[in-house]
Amino acid sequence: MNDDTRTVIRRVLREHARLPVDVDTLGDDADLFAAGMTSHASVNLMLALEDAFDIEFPDRMLTRGVFDSVSAIAAAITELSGDGEPSAAGGGT
């Protein structure tokens, strides 16, 4: 599930984030803004993510920090869709 989520996020990033580099050259924790994503492109990214995952980001989540890496986006989507693996459930953390 988590891998699928990340695959879809990377597809959306490729189509909407207008990064100057190939998204596959970036790790899950790489800072997308430092990699060249503009504020304007980040809005398109958010819209496309809402569409791809059929979710709505509430205002409190609409900040740069929530969208600044593949991992951060995956965490936000997991929180919203409620069906990802809640990290506490595994007891490992």
Partner: peptide, 12 residues
């Protein structure tokens, strides 16, 4: 122009 983009995604 900034607002025009943001208001597409902001909720309130």
């Amino acid at each position: 122009a900034t607002d025009a983009a943001l208001l597409l995604i902001a909720k309130e």
